[in-house]
C-alpha cells in the first residue's frame, strides 16, 4: 500500500506492506536511523518520535497509521546548525553514554519542555518513566533536561505550538522553523 506523511517538515511517501511498523519505515525506508528499536513491546522507548506533536513509541504504530500525519524525529532537533537546548543539555550534563536511548529521551524531553518549561525533578522523572536507560541511572538525564530548561533557545517565535506547526507552515518563513 501507499503511505504519505510529513517527516521533519518534508513530504514523504512510500510503498509498504500494511503491517510495516512506523519505526521500520522511518529507519529502513527513509534512512533516519537516529530513531532506534529496542524491545517490540512498547517498554523501552528507544523508538520514541513525535506524531502530530505528541511523543509515540513507533514500534507500536503502524506506518499506515501515520498516513497523512506529521512525524518528527531526532534528526529535526538541530536547527540551522545549532543544537536544541535539550541536545546541548545532554552533552553538558553527560546525559548519555552508549547513546542508544538518547534520541527517544530527547524527543520526550523536548515535548515536556514545550508544554512545561520549568518542570520539577519529579515531573521530569515521570515524563521519561516509559523509557529505559541502562547506562546512566537517569540522574544525568534529569540534569540534562533541567539544563535545557535553564537555557531555552532565544527564539521569539517559539511557542508551544510552533514545533507541531513547523512542518505544515512553510509560509512562516521556513528557514526559521523548518528543515529544508
Amino acid at each position: 500500500m501507499q503511505v504519505a506523511m510529513t517527516v521533519n517538515g518534508r513530504p514523504v511517501h512510500g510503498e509498504i506492506e500494511p503491517r510495516m511498523l512506523l519505526v521500520h519505515f522511518v529507519r529502513d525506508q527513509l534512512g533516519l536511523t537516529g530513531t532506534h528499536w529496542g524491545c517490540d513491546t512498547s517498554n523501552c522507548g528507544t523508538c520514541v518520535l513525535w506524531m502530530d506533536g505528541e511523543p509515540v513509541k513507533s514500534c507500536t504504530v503502524l506506518a499506515a497509521m501515520a498516513h497523512g500525519h506529521e512525524i518528527r524525529t531526532v534528526e529535526d532537533l538541530e536547527r540551522d546548525g545549532e543544537l536544541d537546548p535539550v541536545q546541548q543539555g545532554f552533552v553538558e550534563q553527560h546525559g548519555l553514554q552508549c547513546g542508544f536511548c538518547t534520541p527517544g529521551m530527547m524527543m520526550t524531553a523536548r515535548w515536556l519542555l514545550d508544554h512545561n518549561p520549568h518542570p520539577s525533578e519529579a515531573e521530569i522523572r515521570e515524563a521519561i518513566s516509559g523509557q529505559i536507560c541502562r547506562c546512566t541511572g537517569y540522574a544525568n538525564i534529569v540534569r540534562a533536561i533541567q539544563w535545557a530548561a535553564e537555557h531555552p533557545r532565544v527564539e521569539p517565535e517559539t511557542v508551544p505550538e510552533a514545533f507541531a506547526a513547523a512542518g505544515q507552515a512553510p509560509e512562516r518563513s521556513g528557514e526559521e522553523v523548518g528543515v529544508r
Binding site: T33, G34, T35, Q87, V91, H94, L96, G99, F100, T102
Partner: peptide, 21 residues
Amino acid sequence: MTRKEDARFVRGRGNYVDDIV
C-alpha cells in the same frame, strides 16, 4: 570535559550495527 563522541549521538548520527545497510 564533555565527550567528543556526543556530537554524533545527540544528532541521531550514531552508527550502530542495525544502521548499516
